[in-house]
């Protein structure tokens, strides 16, 4: 009876917390579609995932106050370390070394992740776990479940505040350092999306004098494996594809652009994204491209 009540309360709290901080699906729909025609070469500009994130401090500050008040010792080294890493990527830009800068930053990021895991954590302090490696597709769930189990085992009489605090940090941040939302942290930045866009666009070749180009929008779904290789390209409007030769031509050209990008090897925008975001595969494994021939410049 008591167990059921506990689980019921726990579930309600989780759902309430998720609604409060927005469901991942809602959030993604709102943010993902980016159509601003910004042209930035990812390889030359230092950008990427951290542009979406507030500093780590905002998440970790509450820890000592809410949970760690009795034992403040171990926390400070970790808390200090991570923000300094996050703020590192802001040095004065050196144009020629831009690519190197991105690389080193990635290395630093990946190097940081294991550290918190290896540090012994004080008992009854799940708050120290947010620095877990960012999850893959199912890691959000694993992280959340692990937290729930720990809460149930290690906190026999948890207060509501403790549960909310723990679940919020675990579930909403998804264990990604420095972020208020795990899904946000795992998303591609505007510049990365724009890099994919500009590369594909560069290889999309159409005949501007063809009839009917003015009212043609081609939707193509692209599936990519974890290494960034395209394994499926689907032209969505098959009915028009079969009946309208001009549409078929433009759609085939668009599909070709995807394949050409795929065959660019290390220069492939998909492979670059895969190498930069191996832990957020779920976010970029399926992409929908909307090709509009005349909405911009035909150059």
């Amino acid at each position: 009876m008591g167990g059921s009540f506990f689980y019921s309360v726990l579930l309600h709290v989780i759902v309430f917390a998720m609604l409060l901080f927005q469901l991942p699906a809602w959030e993604k729909r709102r943010i993902e579609t980016v159509s601003a025609p910004i042209m930035i070469d990812l390889r030359q500009v230092e950008i990427a995932e951290k542009t979406n994130l507030p500093p780590l401090k905002t998440v970790q500050k509450p820890k000592p106050k809410a949970v760690q008040a009795p034992k403040p010792k171990p926390a400070p080294p970790q808390v200090k370390k991570t923000p300094s890493k996050v703020s590192e990527p802001k040095p004065q830009p050196k144009p020629k070394d831009a690519v190197k800068a991105v690389d080193t930053k990635v290395k630093k990021d990946t190097a940081v992740k294991p550290v918190p895991q290896s540090v012994p954590k004080p008992a009854n302090r799940p708050a120290a776990q947010p620095l877990k490696a960012p999850a893959e597709e199912t890691n959000d769930l694993d992280s959340l479940l692990a937290s729930v189990e720990k809460i149930s085992k290690k906190l026999p009489e948890p207060s509501l505040n403790d549960i909310v605090d723990t679940v919020t940090r675990e579930g909403i941040t998804g264990g990604v350092k420095g972020g208020v939302s795990g899904s946000l942290a795992q998303k591609l930045s505007v510049s990365e999306i724009d890099f994919i866009r500009s590369t594909v666009q560069r290889h999309w070749n159409i005949d501007p004098g063809a009839e009917g180009m003015q009212d043609m929008v081609i939707e193509i779904k692209v599936s990519v494996d974890k290494s960034g290789h395209v394994w499926d390209v689907k032209i969505v409007d098959q009915k028009r594809f079969r009946s309208d030769p001009a549409f078929r031509s433009a759609a085939e050209s668009a599909r070709r652009a995807i394949y050409i990008c795929d065959k660019m090897g290390a220069e492939s925008p998909f492979q670059i994204v895969a190498s930069k975001h191996p832990d957020s595969y779920h976010h970029w494994k399926d992409m929908t491209f909307m090709f509009n021939p005349l909405d911009g410049n035909v150059s």
């Binding site: 769930l141 899904s183 994919i196 501007p208 976010h283 929908t288 491209f289 909307m290 509009n292 005349l294």
Partner: peptide, 27 residues
């Protein structure tokens, strides 16, 4: 609980990246 949570997160995981390509080359 696992079922409910997996549903909620699966919904989020299925969201696709959407990219608009406006304009093309004419080479």
């Amino acid at each position: 609980i696992v079922f409910v949570l997996s549903f909620l997160f699966a919904t989020g995981a299925q969201a696709e990246l959407k990219i608009d390509i406006s304009g093309a080359q004419s080479n």
